[in-house]
Amino acid sequence: MQANAEITPLWHDICAESELISNSGICALIDDQQIAIFTLDLAEGRTLYAVSNWDPVGKANVIYRGIIGSVGSEPVVASPLYKEHYSLISGRCMENDGVSLMVYDAQIVDGRVQIAI
């Protein structure tokens, strides 16, 4: 086995695109991991983001309930517990460099939402 072999992500079918809530979040359980999935509907089209649902500051699975917005031009979710802002692109916490969220690839294929783990 090669030490530098690339790992191919495994895509998981989550739900129909029609089940998404515009400009809000939903939660999915994939391989015992809670994943927060956010949908932003902008003039340019629909964009999906997927991050860990675990709030590392509040120590609870609540991120999908957060409010989405932006800091500058970067899309973020504000934790519903202590209001930290997490980048939906990188997962980094805007207020605390010591914490971040896992980020997952998300896509819509043939009307189905898919997340890569």
Rank of each mutant, 00 (worst) to 15 (best):
A36L: 05
L40P: 00
Q114V: 02
S87T: 06
A50T: 11
N61C: 04
R46Q: 05
Q34G: 02
L101A: 07
W11E: 03
G111F: 01
Q33I: 03
L40T: 02
Y104A: 07
Y64W: 15
I14V: 15
I14L: 11
I35R: 08
R65S: 12
Q107T: 14
L10S: 13
I37V: 08
D110I: 03
A43D: 14
S22M: 09
D31E: 13
C93R: 08
M94Q: 12
I26M: 11
D31I: 00
S79A: 11
I21V: 15
S87N: 07
N53S: 10
A60F: 04
A16T: 03
G69F: 01
I108Y: 02
G45F: 01
E44Y: 03
G91S: 03
I108L: 06
E74A: 13
D97V: 09
V77P: 11
L81A: 09
A78V: 00
A28H: 01
Q34L: 11
E84Y: 15
I68G: 05
S24I: 00
V109S: 08
I21N: 12
L10V: 15
E95K: 10
V51T: 13
L88P: 01
V62Q: 02
A16F: 10
F38G: 00
S22L: 04
K83R: 04
L20I: 13
S18G: 08
A116P: 06
I108V: 14
A116K: 13
N53A: 03
I30R: 03
S70F: 09
A43W: 09
G66W: 12
D97A: 15
E6F: 13
P80L: 06
V77W: 08
A60I: 13
D31G: 08
A50F: 05
S100Q: 14
L29M: 12
A50P: 03
A106D: 04
E84G: 01
S52G: 14
E74P: 01
Q2M: 07
I7K: 14
G25E: 08
A78D: 10
L29Y: 06
Y49I: 02
C15M: 13
